[in-house]
């Protein structure tokens, strides 16, 4: 990480310890301090600090293996932290597990459903585990299944499509009106329609005042839905803020994205582009693409840039996205 980027991260990162001192702790429904999880010698989560406000939609954004799911498993009492502590609605994570469990709903990354049962049986079983009464279970099961377009199906869940299983997975996590909903990659594997349905549903839930913790490696999802975003990599939170704050943290707001026909062309262009003063960072991403960050307006050195590149497939000019922020912070793409 170069010095300017480090500075940017520091600008946007809110130290939870400091913020807890300065703000009323009732404002936060989740407070995490120095949370760690080690598997053998490998630190999956490396001392993270977080403060999540009541009623907000908080996204943990990062590539596969960043430690997002491990963090969620610890916060949902399934996985015991190796170190550190957290409070969920003022209950201690390690010592007051059984007080935390009724408050939370968990939608795991994989479709964890009882395949031999119908959608209705799956949802009702979870409701019974939360001790809901019969009338409430019937009304709410029907409403949620209808909302997710899976009502009235009498066949076992194993015959459902991937999207239907995903939506059932989500309904199972919501049946008991949790105060805090953990969504681990909720739209993974969904088609655009299904994804939109889930997003709309999440937005509706947000309006009810439910606190939602979302993990995703989908930039757009994080951007569209979140109040605050924490970017995670190698078990650490490397940036924190609103989507706008994170985007503004970049001093180089302009991006050129080249797509080349071959890697040879890419390497040649990369060598020449490095010599241009205004170019602040060059990152190679998948499919023979180069992402070029530069300062100043494009008009001033358009010719200079184009002279460095003999041929290219496509050229796109745009402002920084969350993905660019991530590239700057980690030097790799989200799907690496």
């Amino acid at each position: 990480m170069n010095a300017s980027i480090k500075e940017d991260v520091q600008k946007t990162y809110i130290d939870p310890d400091q913020s807890s001192n300065s703000k009323n702790s009732d404002e936060f429904i989740i407070e995490v301090q120095g949370l760690e999880k080690t598997f053998g010698g490998f630190k999956a989560v490396d001392g993270i600090n977080l403060h999540i406000r009541k009623g907000e939609l908080f996204s943990l954004l990062g590539p596969n293996g960043a430690g997002k799911s491990t963090t969620i498993k610890m916060l949902t009492t399934v996985l015991k932290p190796s170190n550190g502590n957290a409070r969920i609605n003022n209950y201690r994570l390690i010592k007051e597990k059984m007080k935390i469990k009724p408050l939370i709903g968990v939608c795991p990354q994989e479709n964890v459903i009882f395949e031999a049962l119908t959608a209705e049986d799956n949802v009702k079983f979870v409701a019974h585990m939360h001790g809901m009464d019969f009338d409430e279970i019937n009304i709410r099961t029907k409403a949620l299944l209808e909302k997710m377009n899976i009502a009235g199906r009498k066949k076992a869940a194993k015959s459902f499509s991937g999207g239907m299983k995903r939506r059932l997975n989500l309904v199972m996590s919501l049946i008991h009106y949790p105060q805090i909903l953990f969504l681990d990659e909720p739209s993974a594997g969904l088609d655009p329609q299904g994804r939109r349905l889930v997003w709309d549903f999440i937005n509706d839930l947000k309006k009810t005042g439910m606190t939602i913790i979302l993990t995703t490696h989908d930039m757009i999802e994080a951007d569209v839905l979140s109040d605050h975003i924490a970017i995670m990599d190698h078990g650490k939170i490397i940036a924190f803020g609103t989507s706008e704050e994170l985007k503004n943290s970049s001093s180089n707001g302009n991006i050129l994205e080249f797509s080349f026909f071959s890697n040879k062309e890419l390497i040649q262009a990369q060598k020449k582009l490095k010599e241009i003063d205004n170019v602040t960072k060059i990152t190679e991403i998948e499919n023979n693409k180069l992402v070029l960050s530069f300062s100043g307006g494009i008009k001033t050195f358009k010719e200079e840039i184009l002279n460095c590149v003999d041929s290219f497939k496509t050229l796109q000019f745009r402002e920084d996205t969350l993905e660019d922020i991530f590239l700057k912070l980690t030097g790799r793409g989200l799907r690496d």
């Binding site: 009492t77 399934v78 059984m98 469990k101 795991p108 459903i113 009882f114 395949e115």
Partner: peptide
């Protein structure tokens, strides 16, 4: 194997 035990572990059931 399929994670249902883990899912149950996140619910208020011992």
């Amino acid at each position: 194997k399929n994670g249902t035990l883990e899912r149950l572990d996140s619910m208020p059931v011992g």
